[in-house]
Nucleic acid binder design. Structure first.
Length: 563
RNA sequence: UGGGGUGUCGUCAAGCGGUAAGACACAGGCCUUUGGAGCCUGCAUUCGGAGGUUCGAAUCCUCCCACCCCAGCCA
């Protein structure tokens, strides 16, 4: 952990500290991160990962990684592997404590048998529709199932035959015998086992009955001797059931469930179901599309795990519904990258500049600092010659007020190089487009300010045309155009930002970028942070993803001036 | 019109009866060979509302209001 993700106090840590003080779990702290392997992890999961693993680390406890795989439909090994990979990448380790709820199937079955023997569970043969009717409504109590008072022997027999595969899906379920009149619908004889003839990615066809979440989760926690079972708010209604099951079946070391508010982030969506939709309907290129809020997407985009951890620490943990500004995530990423990313130069939208008074065959190499505030990051050589590219944005015929870049009659500093002065431009007669600029350089400005004391305000980046490496650049923007796309329910796709990806097929960048590894971040000066994409084929020109832009205060000024 | 939760700055979020932290965002300024970074300053007389208790309330009590979750053989 770094200084930035030092956990701050929150209500969960308060509870834990209380429990530690009162020796409630004999000084133990054991948490778990329990994803279901039916999708990729996203930034919301990252919050939970940081919480659970962070707490374990902070209090000298343990945190298990447990795959909550009790519903084989939709679960797969691919998801398991992505989860393992993502949690590791985020910076956490579970030692030898990788568990699967499916490993407990036999044990859970025995628990269910015990519940039946205690007269606390029964096999119910109502069909799904009937079940719904008998359940009552939010304001009306339910009715007891006609099968509620089957004998223990009959229940035992039926349950064994359910396991043995004698019945079709839906023919019977096992229910806890609690209270059909409970004001909490969860407690109205909840189903704890159902028949599901779907092969499981781990247990194959060994089982045709699978435990429900409410039954499996609390008992898995108990088997793992979890002390604090941290989950999200929507399970608050399930806590009485959690406590009931544990109360019936577990004598010692009962875990305690604590709920916190799940994370929401503006301009994106964090529902697994909807993320799946984006992937399956090809709104994005996959789970690891750099625009996705998935851990895999953020990794490919170039977000450092440290930045994600810092973000998770900064948003805090509470019980209030929230919509965290994505600008905070971006700020964390910039903050981290500002310190670690070496500076380089690349031009996104090139404008050719010919330096008329610079000898045609001459090439100079400038020793450029890799980081202006950190000399330990060293220097690199950047070639300079008579023809260079600058950013189209860095020249204008009619400069607005406060414009500090190149314009007719003006001069500007080429970063780490000379001051150049505008001399003329060449336009395409047909389109009016400026095709090249002619400038002169001031040889006296190589290592410092002009000796005559004149001020040169603007500094722009550039790349020597002859030495440039052409790369593809992908500029990413927010996935959605509205702050809270989830508020539109299933219509959220209509808010997708059509400009969330802009591809620039051939951008000149400095030669030091020719063979950089994928994933390591660079700051393209004055533009943003970029990293080479991990998916390109070696024969193609390299692809660079924009991780996040630099703060652009000129855009703000220009915006205001324009109004 | 049942039950369970939550309401403090634009957004997160501290605060736990002694007189509203911090972060992001925003607005000014300084500095700068990145209009980056850094630095400085400003930004809730008020805590969903109304009453009450108290010398003193965001914190305690009462009532009210708003929002979220629950009627999958999903998790």
């Amino acid at each position: 952990m770094t200084k930035n993700d030092a956990p701050v106090g929150d209500f969960i840590r308060e509870i834990i500290e209380d429990d530690l003080r009162t020796e409630k779990h004999r000084g133990r702290v054991a948490t778990r991160f329990p994803p279901e392997p039916n999708g990729y992890l996203h930034i919301g999961h990252a919050k939970s990962v940081c919480l659970n693993f962070g707490i374990a680390a902070q209090y000298g406890g343990t945190c298990n990684l447990r795959l909550d795989d009790t519903d084989p439909s939709g679960e797969s090994l691919e998801y398991v592997q992505s989860i393992i990979n993502d949690v590791h990448w985020l910076g956490f380790d579970w030692g030898n404590r990788l568990f699967y709820a499916s490993d407990y199937f036999e044990h859970l079955y025995q628990f269910a048998v015990n519940l039946i023997k205690a007269g606390k569970a029964y096999v119910c043969s109502l069909n799904a529709d009937q079940m719904r009717e008998y359940r009552g409504t939010l304001t009306e109590p339910g009715k007891e199932s006609p099968y509620r008072n089957r004998s223990i022997e009959e229940n035992l027999d039926l349950f064994a035959r359910m396991r043995a595969g004698e019945f079709e899906d839906g023919a019977h379920v096992l229910r806890a015998k609690i209270d059909m009149a409970s004001p909490n619908v969860v407690m109205r004889d909840p189903i704890i086992y159902r028949i599901k003839r779907v092969p499981h990615y781990r247990t194959g066809t060994d089982w045709v009955i699978y435990p429900m979440y409410d039954f499996a989760h609390c008992l898995s926690d108990s088997l793992e001797k979890i002390t604090h079972s941290i989950c999200t708010l929507e399970f608050e209604n399930n806590r009485p059931l959690y406590d009931w099951i544990v109360g019936e079946l577990i004598a010692h070391d009962r875990p305690r469930q604590i709920e916190f508010a799940r994370l929401n982030v503006s301009y994106t969506i964090l529902s697994k179901r909807r993320l799946i939709q984006l992937v399956e309907q090809n709104y994005v290129t996959g789970w690891d599309d750099p625009r996705m809020p998935t851990v895999a997407g953020m990794r490919r985009r170039g977000y450092p795990p440290e930045a994600i951890r810092t973000f998770c620490a900064k948003i805090g943990v509470a019980k209030k519904d929230n919509l965290v500004d994505i600008a905070l995530l971006e700020a964390c990423v910039r903050d981290d990258l500002n310190e670690r990313a070496p500076r380089v130069m690349g031009v996104l939208r090139p404008l050719k500049v010919i330096i008329d008074n610079y000898p045609e065959d001459r090439v100079e190499e400038f020793e450029c600092a890799n980081h202006p505030q950190n000399s330990a990051m060293g220097t690199r050589k950047v070639p300079f010659s008579r023809v260079i590219y600058i950013e189209q944005d860095d020249f204008t015929e009619n400069p607005p007020r406060k414009y500090k870049r190149l314009a007719p009659g003006k001069e500007v500093r080429l970063r780490s190089s000379y001051v150049i002065r505008y001399q003329g431009m060449v336009k395409n007669e047909q389109t009016g487009e400026i095709t090249e600029l002619h400038c002169t350089y001031d040889p006296e400005t190589r290592n410092g300010p002009p000796p005559d004391g004149r001020k040169v305000d603007g500094v722009i980046h550039w790349v020597s045309a002859n030495h440039a490496v052409p790369v593809e650049v992908r500029l990413y923007d927010r996935l959605f155009q509205v702050p809270d796309p989830a508020a539109s329910g299933d219509g959220f796709v209509r808010h997708l930002n059509p400009h969330s990806l802009e591809t620039l097929p051939s951008c000149p960048v400095e030669p030091s970028l020719r063979d950089v590894p994928s994933g390591s971040p660079y700051q393209f000066e004055r533009l943003g942070y970029f990293c080479r994409d991990s998916k390109g084929t070696p024969s193609d020109p390299p692809v660079f993803n924009r991780i996040v832009s630099l703060r652009d205060s000129w855009a703000k000024i220009a915006g205001k001036e324009g109004k």
